[in-house]
């Protein structure tokens, strides 16, 4: 078991700066998700931790040892690749055994550890098959079993579920969480899927443009995004951002007023769709409903607040129709105030 310290890591590809002084500490046994859109640098960071890419500057320390210049095989980690990278010319058993064979483990030890990893991932019944005969989900299990068989101090996962269909992804997600909790392995998990990150991780590092915008527990990031990007990226529907005027500590929208931080800067009201409630008498923040989508568990209302696009989540039984203007009440404690110029959240009022 080991902790991971990423210390001001920079990566440049030619003149392109893919990572700008990224620092991150992952505690022993912790599960951290690197979450962000394509091209944000999350996979590059993971590959630098693995040793498959070399950082331009900065250090990677695993379990107290500076591994910045060590070959991947000397870093004591295991990895699950996006397209599994399960060796096609080896049986499932030999795939899972690969890391142990490289460590020159005895035949008895190989057998014992492969069988344990296989049992954990429920692949015992096809140990003697070749990967080509397996489905995507089964290959995914083989890839995870291969990684866990070596009992790594650190496990790196690069979008491991993204090639699976939606239902299988949900199933594997639940199972991964249970398996990894049991193994107690320090895990870094790269994904662009916020539900995956929210569901699996102890902490999420949201990356954007080669930087980490925010690190925190899933609910913390959800409730108090540090930047406009984080608020918009996490949550479905994404957070609404409404430009407002703040004078004398009050922001007026329609006949509603919210206490706001008077900083003299241009402000945006960050409002989660489910943090607004339909008022009984139509008072409060006016919301012009354009489209109503019944999602089963809730109604998704798309429309505009003060002429600016917004999405609101309403109870499934609410009586709302397209073209209607409804009133919204908002708990001031649950809104985020964003500085329009910097895109950063301001201290709460």
């Amino acid at each position: 078991m080991a902790d991971i310290v990423i210390d001001r890591v920079v990566k440049e590809f030619g003149s392109f700066r893919a990572l700008q002084e990224v620092s991150l500490t992952v505690n022993d046994g912790e599960f951290v998700a690197l979450l962000g859109p394509s091209g944000c640098g999350k996979t590059t960071l993971l590959r630098i931790i693995a040793g498959l890419e070399t950082q331009t500057a900065g250090r990677v320390v695993i379990g107290g040892q500076d591994v910045s210049n060590l070959a991947p095989r000397k870093r004591g980690l295991a990895m699950v690749f996006q397209n599994y990278a399960v060796f096609p010319h080896m049986t499932v058993f030999e795939n899972v055994a690969f890391g142990l064979r490289m460590q020159k483990a005895s035949q008895a030890e190989v057998k014992r550890k492969v069988e344990r990893a296989a049992a954990l991932l429920h692949i015992e019944s096809y140990l003697d098959r070749y990967p080509a005969k397996l489905s995507g989900g089964q290959r995914q299990r083989v890839a995870v079993a291969r990684a866990l068989a070596v009992e790594p101090a650190v496990l790196l996962m690069d979008e491991p579920l993204s090639n699976l269909d939606a239902l299988l992804r949900l199933e594997m997600r639940t199972e991964l969480k249970a398996v990894l909790r049991e193994a107690g392995t320090t895990t870094i998990y790269v994904t662009h899927d916020q539900t995956e990150a929210m569901g699996l991780a102890d902490r999420i590092a949201v990356m954007y443009g080669g930087k980490i915008d925010q690190i925190g527990a899933p609910l913390e990031i959800y409730a108090t995004p540090a930047t406009r990007f984080v608020g918009g990226f996490i949550g479905s529907p994404p957070m609404n951002f409404i430009k407002v005027q703040c004078s004398q500590g009050q922001a007026r929208i329609g006949d509603a007023a919210l206490p706001c931080p008077s900083t003299g800067k241009d402000l945006e009201l960050g409002l989660r769709g489910e943090d607004a409630a339909l008022s009984a008498n139509g008072s409060g923040i006016p919301f012009d409903v354009r489209v109503v989508e019944p999602m089963g568990s809730h109604l998704l209302l798309t429309g505009a607040i003060d002429g600016q696009p917004a999405r609101i989540v309403a109870p499934p039984t609410a009586k709302v129709s397209a073209g209607e203007r409804v009133g919204l009440t908002v708990d001031p404690a649950r809104v985020t105030w964003i500085d329009s110029t910097t895109g950063r959240a301001l201290a709460r009022v």
Binding site: L52, A71, L77, A85, F98, M102
Partner: peptide
């Protein structure tokens, strides 16, 4: 990825 996986796992 095959060579990378092998490298990670100690080859």
């Amino acid at each position: 990825e095959f060579a990378e996986a092998a490298e990670i796992f100690g080859a």
